[in-house]
Computed example of a mutant assay.
Amino acid sequence: MKVSKQNAEHYVWGGKCDGWHLVKNKDVSIIHERMPPHTKEVRHYHTRAQQFFFVLKGTAALEVDGIIYDVKAHEGVEVLPFILHQMMNRSSEEIEFLVISQPFAQGDRVAVYEEED
């Protein structure tokens, strides 16, 4: 079956961001995500899954193990298990990207909350 944002399972995260499960099984997941300007996810790591973030539109800021990478459209970054990371949209434009997780990342995410200043 052909899959797209129009027919994929949709969810909202962080109150404003969207995700569409393009592939969702125990071995791999591929999610198309959209982040409005000035949004970010919680810094976290995965205990099993390795992930690959591939930007489709805009420029994302992806923090990986304390280093922030500006990831432009058609660029990607791999994140291995146990490595802290956080996707951010620091721009005034919407960003879209793919998150490819192997194996399926649900259930192995460990959030790291920071104290507010």
Rank of each mutant, 00 (worst) to 15 (best):
A8R: 08
R43N: 03
P37F: 06
D108H: 09
Q102E: 15
D117V: 15
P81G: 01
P37T: 10
M35S: 12
F54D: 13
I31L: 14
E116V: 11
V71Q: 00
H74N: 14
F54H: 15
G66K: 10
A111V: 15
I67T: 10
L80G: 08
F82W: 08
T59K: 10
T59A: 08
S29A: 13
F104S: 07
V99Y: 01
E33V: 13
K26Y: 06
E116S: 06
S4D: 09
E63R: 04
H21P: 00
V71H: 00
L22M: 13
D108L: 12
G107L: 05
E114Q: 11
L22A: 10
Y11K: 11
R109W: 04
V64G: 01
F97Y: 15
E114M: 13
V79P: 04
V3A: 07
E96H: 00
E116L: 09
R90P: 04
F52G: 01
S91R: 09
H46F: 09
R43Q: 09
D108M: 08
T39L: 09
Y113V: 13
P36D: 00
V12C: 06
K2S: 07
M1N: 03
E78K: 10
H74I: 11
M88Q: 14
G58F: 05
S101K: 10
K2A: 07
H38L: 15
K57Y: 07
E41H: 06
D18S: 10
S91P: 05
V28S: 08
H46L: 10
Y45E: 08
V71A: 00
L84Y: 11
H10P: 01
L80T: 12
R90C: 09
S91H: 02
D65A: 09
H46A: 10
F82E: 13
V23I: 12
L84G: 09
N7I: 02
A60S: 04
Y11E: 11
R34H: 10
M88L: 13
F97D: 09
A8S: 12
V110E: 02
G15H: 02
K24P: 00
R48Q: 14
K24Y: 12
V28W: 02
V112E: 04
E78C: 13
